[in-house]
Design a protein around this nucleic acid. Sequence first.
DNA 1: ATTATACTCCGGTTCTACAGTGGGGATTAC
DNA 2: GTAATCCCCACTGTAGAACCGGAGTATAAT
Lengths: 144, 144
Amino acid sequence: MELSCKSEYALLALIELSLHYSKGEPLRICQIAAEQAIPDRYLEQLLATLRRAGFVKSQRGAKGGYLLTREPWKITLLDVVSCIEGFEAKAKEVKSPTTAEGAAVWEVWHEVRQGAEAVLEKYTLQDLVDQRNARQQVDLMYYI
Amino acid sequence: MELSCKSEYALLALIELSLHYSKGEPLRICQIAAEQAIPDRYLEQLLATLRRAGFVKSQRGAKGGYLLTREPWKITLLDVVSCIEGFEAKAKEVKSPTTAEGAAVWEVWHEVRQGAEAVLEKYTLQDLVDQRNARQQVDLMYYI
DNA sequence: ATTATACTCCGGTTCTACAGTGGGGATTAC
DNA sequence: GTAATCCCCACTGTAGAACCGGAGTATAAT
């Protein structure tokens, strides 16, 4: 379970799309990239992955861009992260330990992974949006 | 928090040392490497790191090898992993999020990390040794 | 139909870290 | 002294992350 910059970019983009979800209008890559300070050509690759996985759909041509295919509260962070970090995560898990010591270590590794997945599964995109709004509320209070 | 092959090798080596801890005799790199199927020249580097961090001490010359400096139940897996995965983990954490969305993601990342650390802190080398022994017991029962 | 927009696919580059290898030197037991 | 063993430095190979560019193509606005 990697928590790389890649996953973070993907999540930020999806949060941005969640914020515009109710409008129903597509959001351009360059808009998302500018808002979240992500290199746009890199974000393009990530959105392509997310599109192939069915999280977003694209609308080509003028006034085009990306849209969420599901409601923000129906996409968990685990969905996104495991999509971005690749399906070969399974292959890594299959490597069977050769020694009794290896098996003991493997069990702990597995527990750590399960814990991480449990946390990521607990939150949806909507939760992050709400958290963001709450944070901005706090910032506003400080401003006053 | 990486759970790479590197950390696994280091843990396996320390478990091996824990098994011989009561004997008080040093264990050679090549013995550990052979037992756990680890490339010996690579293990040497990891043990050097563990030595500099104070988990093991070395005895040079003929009949030399490595010894644990503390009792196996006084070393948690978190101690080992955070030593091996490097101190620059802190540097990665310091990267402050620039947007409200980034802060929301960062909080989740932090929670995942805390969860992983909690699991790793829960177990000591002795726990893994006990787990190994229990597993071998089961294997023995199947054998009979 | 034209045109601008913007996605799609192809490739390449740079950088970093991991994983593993090798040589020469230092230290200690015997 | 000799053999055994650790110590240090440097090196290669591979993989992945992050990023950049360009040519092509689909779509919608006009």
